[in-house]
Amino acid sequence: MRRQVPPDPPSTSRSPVVALSGVAKTFANGVQALDGLDLDVRPGEFMSLLGPSGCGKSTALRLIAGLSEPSRGSITWGVRNASARRGHDIGFVFQEPTLMPWATVAGNVALPLQLGGTRPAEIAPRVAHALDDVGLAAFHAAYPRELSGGMKMRVSIARALVTDPGLLLMDEPFAALDEITRFKLNNDLLHLWQTLRKTVVFVTHSVFESVYLSNRIVVMTPRPGRVFKELTIEAPYPRQESFRTSAEYAGYCRIASEALTQAMAAAA
């Protein structure tokens, strides 16, 4: 690894990276997306927010990113993560690649550094590292329209990683991709998470994806969303393709699936 690796989060410290407490969000049009959401994001974890479409998962992510303000409740940042409050320590990956079509791959990845006022001399090597991390070093001069959907998403991930943020927020990033590409990106994301040691909050509506990736799944109720149940996935990392066909994986998928069904029923 080229970057300095922060020491393991002290296991005695249960201080969350960020904690949502009693968070509610009602939009101007009267739609209540969240009500009474309590959520801790723990240092170094890969946490999935799992829920049906429209349950406020994405809204929760936007609140954490500071792109939206809660109507009620509080969002508290851990002491060591004070800079995340200002967005400096957060990487965000949208459902679409959300690239600037007029800029090259390198130009897109450089954006967060340029906006943050990083010295120009420092930008190029950091962009090269981030592109290397996602396996796109050879495509730095390509334009987004020349890339496949999976490659565009890799660029989007590289852009989120280039500032070396402690917290990575991902909003159904692979939902629009074909299954083969999605599986490949799942594996690569897990590898990145393990080597770069980020805290990840991953929004998905796929039971299978959440089980494969996470060490904790938070199942949410339909709108207005709140936490219905938390599941811990004990399966060890690194997880390989063989994990997808294991009995352990199938068992977790059944538990998560049942929790999701119960969440739907509880709301009805």
Binding site: R62, A65, G66, L67, R86, G87, H88, I90, F92, F94, E96, T98, M100, W102, A103, L111, P112, Q114, L115, G116, T163
Partner: peptide, 26 residues
């Protein structure tokens, strides 16, 4: 302007002139 791109600029604390010259005009 793509709304997600606008959010991205906001997330990284872009100034109004950065938004104008790097996002809106292109």
């Amino acid at each position: 302007v793509d709304r997600n791109l606008a959010d991205l600029y906001r997330l990284y604390g872009a100034s109004w002139d950065q938004v104008l010259f790097r996002l809106k005009l292109p």
